[in-house]
Nucleic acid binder design. Sequence first.
DNA 1: AAATTCTCCTGAAGGC
DNA 2: TGCCTTCAGGAGAATT
Length: 270
Amino acid sequence: MPELPEVETTLRGISPWLQDQTLRAVEVREPRLRWPVPEAVQGAVGARITGLRRRAKYLLLDTDAGGELLVHLGMSGSLRVVTDGAPPRKHDHFDLVTDRAVIRYNDPRRFGAFLWVTPPSETHELLRHLGPEPLGEAFDGEGLYTRSRGRRGAVKNFIMDGRVVVGVGNIYASEALFMAGIHPARAAGRVSLERYRSLAAAIREVLQRAIAQGGTTLRDYVNSDGAPGYFALDLQVYGRESKACFQCGAPVRQKVIGQRSSFYCARCQR
DNA sequence: AAATTCTCCTGAAGGC
DNA sequence: TGCCTTCAGGAGAATT
């Protein structure tokens, strides 16, 4: 399940292969993704890829053809670099072909997306309501505090809301809340400014650490099975139900909050 | 406005 | 061993 660190690592993995390259072909074998892949993606063929960036968990490939290719990995998607002419495998839904390599998209569950976006992309319906980047300067505890006043929903759901802050998925939400000592089910409006400051710092910390780990696996992008699913991050609570909390020894608990499995230590998190 | 539910899909895991 | 059932999960859309 690609979370922001996996998407960022994917970006870094494919960028050297696509930056300034001319797109020779876009081969779509299975257009049935989250939304049908539009014919318009062919508008990128013959164009030069002038830049690659990430916004939230969206990958944006800018071209000199007046549009951008948007790729979202959904929850089971991955991109890999193919240089040996290997034939497509099961669930390999589309290829970006350059003179140097084929960038191949694989996605068993087809929750991902591949679209053509016309600038300015910030106003595109998928991107216009997105909150600040957690690793950017616009994200801080004050913002979380202000936006959360009066909200009775769980703080975990609050930080997973893309309008509040982007890129905080289920795993890292649990991890960041543990780091900040905040109970995931606590009402968002009942968390103090000081604690939101720690939470914002924890979110940055956990994401940055995961990205750093991902950097060591970049070679896996070439002629491999694609990006690793989860980075071998030392998770403190996620997936550790009934195991001893690393901080106090109490059993880690698991509870469904907002239809999502959440892990926490009832003793360390209030 | 905010919160909740539903939806897409397949691989993995669990039950028998 | 193998078949059947259940479930997770990103995030937009629909609903309350």
